[in-house]
Computed example of a mutant assay.
Amino acid sequence: MSVRVLVVDDQDLFRAGFGMILDAQPDLAVVGEAADGLEAIDKAVALAPDVVVMDVRMPRLDGVAATRRICAETSAKVLVLTMFDLDEYVYDALRAGASGFLLKDARREELAEAVRVVAAGEALLAPTVTRRLIADLADRGRPRPELARRLGELTERERDTLRQLARGCSNAEIATAMTVSEHTVKTHVSAVLSKLGLRDRVQAVVFAYEAGLVVPGGLA
């Protein structure tokens, strides 16, 4: 069954180009397009896509606000595209619920694979974006006490798993570090996301830093 994709961009050429690239993949199907954030919300509700490929800077309603609404009102995952790796909206878009962030100059195969990764429930960040995210988190200073208290909802193994997630480790790497099977890691990850009400790994990384479980440059 094909992954249903909604492409959102205010520039016709980008929108058409992304649509053609994705629609050419045998496992992906572009079900609609939108030229701004308000149209994106309407289309996401009406068409029920699995993934929304979202531009950030658009008229009427920007991609961050649209992402927040789409993530709150639908089950769609959002992959945000931007021209700039130091886009000031990176942190806000991830906080809004975006599952991935990719630069618009990515190769066509990277775009298609990014959609697949996000659709599968994983998170995806370009390396430069990851560095910016960690820098932003560091700049925000002290942990948020209300989030730190919620760490008590996790078992020690689940907290260890969250620490590893915040370091950007894959399931295989976490399994090796914790001397458990990948299946067990998947169970821990699911428990962490469920107990903390998080959508995916990106949100888990943000939570871990904001709660003070880990600190930029090392582990707490």
Score class of each variant (00 low, 15 high):
Leu124Ile: 02
Leu151Ser: 03
Ala46Pro: 09
Ala46Val: 10
Gln164Lys: 11
Arg60Gly: 10
Arg159Glu: 07
Ala34Lys: 08
Leu94Glu: 01
Gly17Met: 02
Leu162Trp: 03
Val30Phe: 01
Phe84Pro: 01
Phe101Ala: 03
Ile21Asp: 01
Leu213Ala: 04
Ala119Asp: 02
Pro216Thr: 10
Ala211Met: 12
Gln25Ser: 07
Gly37Pro: 02
Ala148Tyr: 07
Val8Gln: 00
Ala208Phe: 03
Gly97Ser: 11
Leu133Tyr: 09
Cys71Ser: 07
Asp105His: 13
Leu61Lys: 06
Tyr91Ser: 12
Val78Tyr: 10
Ala126Gln: 04
Glu156Trp: 11
Asp105Trp: 09
Tyr91Val: 07
Asp139Phe: 15
Ala172Asn: 15
Ala96Gly: 07
Ala72Leu: 15
Ala148His: 14
Pro216His: 12
Ala65Val: 12
Pro26Asp: 05
Arg68Pro: 05
Arg150Ile: 12
Ala48Trp: 09
Ala66Asp: 03
Arg149Phe: 05
Gly212Ile: 02
Thr130Asn: 08
Glu110Leu: 03
Thr74Ser: 03
Ala96Arg: 02
Phe84Cys: 05
Arg57Phe: 13
Met20Gln: 12
Thr161Leu: 09
Asp36Val: 04
Gly217Lys: 15
Glu88Asn: 15
Ala44Thr: 11
Tyr91Pro: 03
Arg108Cys: 11
Gly217Thr: 08
Val45Phe: 10
Arg159Tyr: 14
Gly212Asp: 04
Glu210Ile: 14
Pro59Met: 10
Thr130Glu: 11
Lys43Ile: 08
Leu47Gln: 13
Pro26Asn: 09
Asp87Ile: 02
Ser181Ile: 04
Ala98Pro: 02
Leu198Asp: 12
Leu151Phe: 05
Leu154Met: 09
Met58Val: 07
Pro145Trp: 10
Gln164Ala: 15
Ala172Thr: 13
Arg95Cys: 11
Gly97His: 06
Glu73Gln: 12
Val202Trp: 02
Thr74Glu: 01
Asp160Lys: 14
Glu73Trp: 08
Leu94Phe: 09
Ala44Leu: 09
Leu22Tyr: 04
Arg108Gln: 11
Thr179Leu: 04
Leu124Val: 04
Gly218Val: 06
Val206Met: 10
Leu193Val: 12
Ala48Asp: 13
Ala120Asp: 07
Asp23Ile: 01
Glu146Lys: 06
Asp10Pro: 13
Arg157Met: 14
Phe84Arg: 06
Gln11Cys: 10
Asp27Cys: 08
Glu158Phe: 03
Gly218Met: 05
Gly141Tyr: 09
Leu86Ile: 10
Leu193Ser: 10
Leu193Arg: 06
Gly121Glu: 04
Leu198Gly: 13
Arg144Leu: 15
Arg163Ser: 11
Gly168Ser: 12
Arg116Asn: 05
Ala148Asn: 06
Asp200Thr: 06
Val30His: 02
Gly17Val: 04
Gln203Cys: 05
Ala177Cys: 08
Phe207Lys: 05
Leu22Pro: 01
Val30Tyr: 00
Lys186Ile: 09
Arg4Leu: 02
Val53His: 00
Arg142Asp: 12
Arg167Glu: 11
Leu125Thr: 00
Ala166Ile: 13
Ala35Asp: 10
Asp85Lys: 14
Glu153Asp: 11
Ala204Asn: 04
